[in-house]
Design a protein around this nucleic acid. Structure first.
Lengths: 164, 164
DNA sequence: CGCATTTGGTTGAAGTGTCAAGTAAAAATA
DNA sequence: TATTTTTACTTGACACTTCAACCAAATGCG
């Protein structure tokens, strides 16, 4: 029935596709190495702490934190447990909706990412932005957002800015 | 001593960075789901078979196969073992250099990726190229190659074309 | 109100990936 | 030619991710 000829990739598409594939497999490890070395933290754990540190009062419900780290609730739950065991986050039940778990970054956790942040942005810069000129960055931002939309229509970075 | 002010990201860089982060965490899973469903194959396993199927005679040494899949030798070794157990690849010692393990795709393996390929390219197309216009694809290919170079100067996709 | 459904989150098991260590062959060096 | 170093790869242990099942609170509805 659906025996149509597949829409194969042309040379430029293939080139783009191979690059995306290489980036998705190499970049996480490259960014993680310094974090692992400096603080035994995975890239994902770093992002969890970073998102909390940028949130109002350093607190977010698990669902929202999962959204902002593009993670499943399950993955986040395991990691939150581990971060809690290390004293980097605190957890409490939401007053008003007892299903909701609030996760807050602790003082120790806050100090940790603040200490790590300079080296981490430097990694990001070396691996990404130092490779690109200004036009490249603009193109990457534009194309990147389109791809994110294709992966998750509701992704938090695509939310319209809140009206104050 | 290196107490300089960190080079923080500006808005456009931050936007690009968040997109890259989201893509690297969401894309692999999205591409893997159909492969897992159809053939209990991970994205990485699929790529191993795909690279072999595109190689001359369907054979490559482990090192070269690792390079073409952007993987560590260790990761590849574990997976090759598993693929061999499933009868999808065959392994032999290189004649002339006994340290080298040659990995060849079997007839069964070849049939498997040929069967899977149409649906897989369709996934790639839906998730990536259907989201982009022609200029986007050109920009992605260009920027993507630059990022790959920053991650691995020697990456196989950057090798100069062989002279025949 | 009573019951079913949905939402928000947790858990344990099973499968993968990573890291450090190990092995054997080849190449370099003395 | 003997010894050391390097290359190519494998292995086992441990950590992490995913998946399916589960639970409790909130909501919907008859």
């Amino acid at each position: 029935m659906t025996e149509l000829e597949p829409r194969w990739l042309n040379d430029e598409e293939r080139s783009a596709w191979l690059a995306v594939l290489a980036i998705t497999t190499l970049l996480p490890g490259a960014l993680e190495a310094p974090l692992q070395q400096a603080a035994k933290l995975s890239l994902f754990e770093y992002n969890v702490l970073a998102m909390l540190s940028e949130a109002e009062d350093g607190i977010l419900p698990m669902s929202e934190l999962a959204a902002r780290t593009s993670a499943s609730l399950s993955r986040l739950s395991h990691v939150a447990k581990k971060l809690h065991a290390r004293g980097l986050v605190e957890r409490s039940v939401h007053t008003g909706d007892a299903r909701v778990t609030q996760t807050a970054i602790t003082g120790v956790g806050l100090k940790l990412i603040r200490d790590l942040a300079p080296a981490h942005v430097e990694s990001v810069r070396e691996l990404i932005f130092d490779q690109l000129d200004h036009k490249d960055v603009a193109d990457l931002a534009r194309v990147g957002r389109k791809l994110v939309r294709g992966l998750d229509e509701q992704h938090w970075t695509l939310r319209p800015p809140v009206q104050p």
